[in-house]
Deep mutational scan, measured.
Amino acid sequence: RGFLEKAAVKKMAKAIMADPNKADEVYKKWADKGYTLTQMSNFLKSKTAGKYDRVYNGYVIHLD
């Protein structure tokens, strides 16, 4: 289950990176699912340092 969630989160993160207008909708879905910042950090780990920082930081702001 965790692997599928991670894959889904990364897919949506890539969608945000391609079209930032989708961010609020995606952040709301993640918040509704109760994803914590720790979970998001783990889901968005990448071999490329900083690749998903913008998405993660946007989610931090959304939760605030």
Results as ranks from 00 to 15, higher is better:
K47L: 06
A23T: 04
P20G: 07
K47Q: 09
V60R: 11
Q39E: 14
Y52E: 01
L63N: 02
S46P: 05
N21E: 11
G58K: 00
D64Y: 11
A23S: 08
V60W: 07
N42C: 15
D32N: 09
D24M: 10
T36Y: 03
F43H: 04
K22W: 05
H62R: 02
K28C: 09
N57D: 15
A15H: 07
K10I: 15
S41Q: 13
K28I: 06
L37G: 04
Y35P: 00
G50P: 04
Q39Y: 03
P20H: 09
P20V: 06
E5R: 06
V55D: 01
I16S: 01
I61S: 11
K28A: 09
L37Q: 07
N21Q: 10
A15T: 10
D32F: 07
F43R: 02
A18K: 12
A18T: 09
L44N: 00
A49H: 11
N21Y: 09
E5V: 10
K10Q: 13
A23I: 04
Y35C: 06
G34R: 05
K29S: 13
D64G: 15
W30K: 00
M17P: 00
F43T: 03
F3N: 12
D64T: 14
K28T: 10
A18V: 11
S41P: 02
D64P: 03
T38R: 09
K14N: 13
A49Q: 12
Y59D: 02
L4E: 13
T48C: 12
L4S: 15
F43G: 02
E5A: 08
L37T: 09
V60G: 07
E25A: 11
S41I: 07
F3Y: 13
W30R: 00
G34N: 07
S46H: 07
H62E: 02
L4V: 13
D32S: 09
G58H: 03
T48Q: 10
V55K: 00
L4A: 13
G2Q: 14
S41F: 11
V26R: 02
A23K: 07
Y56A: 01
M17H: 04
G2S: 11
G2I: 12
K22S: 09
K10P: 01
W30D: 00
N57K: 10
N42M: 10
